[in-house]
């Protein structure tokens, strides 16, 4: 009894501290996140040029986006975000975005990620569902797993600007 009580108190204190810190962190993230986040919409990385080839260059990206958008429309979690959008335009922008990231001969002239997703109330589950739809499309096009992950590594930080529902 003497030994368990301090343990339980320590545990409770730890839990309280943990939830307090995490609540503060969440508030900080919500407050400072999207507006001031400077992660670029299409961060070019010359080291990914070989990955551009593994994606089949620009024609490969065009084919990929067709399947990606089909998946997004078939997925009940992501469909609501795309069913009333100009999907052809989005596909073209995605091609340019990925092409620039993979150091292809393209220019991205689309919106920044904050503006593009403003007001959509995207949460973590929505974001991850989109990633899975992209993975499914990349698998269908036989893009090697390591190459997929190198692209995803560039896209993942955009969650700060895209996810607005904590």
């Amino acid at each position: 009894m003497y030994k368990t009580l301090p343990s339980i108190l320590l545990l409770a204190a730890g839990l309280l501290a943990g939830t307090t810190i995490s609540a503060q962190t969440a508030m900080q993230q919500a407050g400072s996140g999207a507006a001031s986040d400077t992660y670029p919409a299409a961060p070019r990385d010359p080291a990914l040029k070989p990955v551009f080839e593994e994606f089949g260059g620009k024609p490969g990206l065009v084919a990929l986006m067709n399947d990606f958008m089909d998946n997004l429309m078939a997925d009940p979690v992501t469909r609501p975000f795309f069913q009333n959008a100009d999907r052809e335009h989005i596909k073209a922008e995605l091609v340019d975005q990925f092409c620039v990231i993979l150091d292809g001969p393209c220019t991205y002239t689309g919106m920044d990620m904050t503006t593009a997703h403003r007001g959509m109330n995207v949460d973590h589950a929505d974001f991850n569902a989109l990633v899975e739809d992209l993975q499914k499309a990349m698998n269908k096009h036989d893009i090697p797993f390591r190459a997929q992950n190198k692209l995803l590594a560039k896209l993942a930080p955009m969650h700060r600007q895209i996810i607005t529902k904590p």
């Binding site: 545990l11 730890g14 839990l15 943990g18 939830t19 810190i21 995490s22 962190t25 992660y39 995803l152 590594a153 560039k154 993942a156 930080p157 969650h159």
Partner: peptide, 16 residues
């Protein structure tokens, strides 16, 4: 057992 995530995201924070 009990566990609490304090901060960070192992999967999404790829630029940090």
């Amino acid at each position: 057992g009990v566990k609490v995530r304090l901060f960070g995201d192992a999967v999404l924070d790829q630029d940090s």
